[in-house]
């Protein structure tokens, strides 16, 4: 749900990073935070446990500049990936404009990817959204690990609708901005269509 403020001439959009626990969602937005010009970003808020596992959400506001005289702001959120935090995940999906699914490429995590993806589809549905209809990008993270599955096999199992797919090593920043730019563009294109 994009928030268009004609009075302040601002567009605010919400992007949610979804995926299994320890897949690199927080690493993605931490990298964005580190590499973004200080004038274009707000504070990175992490509601995490003592061991740095996401407890509720991470939040990063980004200012992308002006488009047609409107300041364009993106609010990036991550969900807690661990299975038992499902109630929190549902809350964070409220009002979402675009979703990035961060999949863990390690063979041993494929089942967790699939479970998280099913959970995403279900939770979106509960909020009245349809994965097939909203801006959506798939990121295959941790491509540098020796146990990473072949890209084609991952796509076969995880791709849902011919969405853009990016290979990433979020800890080094590979693929992070490509993913973000693509989802942001898709959200703006959706905005152009109007509803």
């Amino acid at each position: 749900m994009t928030f268009i403020n004609y009075a302040a001439r601002e567009i605010n959009c919400k992007i949610v990073y979804y995926g299994p626990g320890l897949g690199g969602k927080t690493t993605n937005i931490k990298y964005v935070y580190e590499k973004t010009n200080p004038n274009s970003k707000g504070k990175l808020i992490s509601l995490a446990t003592e061991t740095d596992r996401t407890l509720f959400f991470d939040f990063l506001p980004l200012d992308l500049g002006e488009i047609r005289g409107f300041r364009t702001r993106f609010h990036l959120y991550t969900v807690p990936g661990q299975v038992f935090y499902d109630a929190s995940r549902k809350l964070i999906l409220k009002g979402v404009d675009g979703v990035v699914f961060v999949a863990d490429s390690q063979a041993a995590r494929m089942e967790a990817n699939l479970e998280s993806l099913r959970n995403l589809e279900l939770n979106l549905k509960e909020q009245g959204y349809n994965l097939a209809a909203i801006p959506y990008v798939l990121q295959l993270n941790k491509r540098d690990l020796p146990s990473a599955l072949p890209v084609e096999e991952m796509k076969k199992q995880l791709s849902r609708k011919g969405e853009p797919v990016f290979e990433a090593i979020a800890s080094k920043g590979n693929g992070v901005f490509e993913t973000l730019k693509t989802i942001a563009k898709m959200v703006l294109i959706e905005l152009r269509k109007g509803r």
């Binding site: 268009i4 403020n5 004609y6 009075a7 009245g128 959204y129």
Partner: peptide, 15 residues
Amino acid sequence: MAGQDLVLHEEEFNK
């Protein structure tokens, strides 16, 4: 509908 955008116009903003 869940995807309904929220639009704030000058008039309501001022109020």
